[in-house]
Amino acid sequence: MRLALFADIHANRQAFAACLDAARARGAERLVCLGDIVGYGADPEWAVDTVMDLVADGALAVRGNHDHAIGMPSDSMNDDATAAIDWTRGRLNAEQKSFLAGLPLQRDDDNRLYVHSEASDPARWRYVRDTADAARSMMATGLRITFCGHIHRPGLYSMSSAAKMTSFVPTSGIAVQLLTGRRWLAVLGSVGQPRDGDPAASFAMFDTDSREITYLRVPYDMETAAARIRANGLPHWLADRLLIGR
């Protein structure tokens, strides 16, 4: 079965629509949303409605820290993020808010774990920045493959049977087989606000039969996405950063 995995959509309609099209063109059979559907971007209603429809059709979704902050304001967010969350809260209706609040922190599915931040303590929203962070997450789950997001930069970690770690920055479009002899942590890039220097939207496909993961980059209409952020009075940096991927 071919999975399409999306993390950190962040209410970026243009980016998410482009990624969904690309995933369908590649024959995606099941969609997985790894959290942070809202925050930063200017189309939270559309983003939440879209994910709700996908979930109704069998997609899996977990809750991210921005989704969580809609119902439970966070004091650890920076000013821009807080401003965007406050604005977003005013845009969502009760049904949309309750959908976000009701998302699980993690889901597992046939020896795979889906979580927004990492597995050792999902509600603490820690980042996976290096092999030490990855090892902590991998030690906390018995499942062979973990998919997460949160840091907005793609990364692929593995742990051998002797607990040796490897890290790798995946190349777009190149399938990597997740060998059965080791455990894997796949950190997805961000659909709606990439921060690895490439402004193109990021998602991944995973083939459960061949165990191959393919990270992909999708060009999208970032000018419109940025213009909508400015037009809605959100902090301008949230628009500017889309154009540079930082």
Binding site: T166, S167, F168, V176
Partner: peptide, 11 residues
């Protein structure tokens, strides 16, 4: 391989 994880890197 430039486009694959280098499993020998920290082994």
């Amino acid at each position: 391989h430039k486009h694959l994880p280098d499993l020998l890197q920290e082994e």
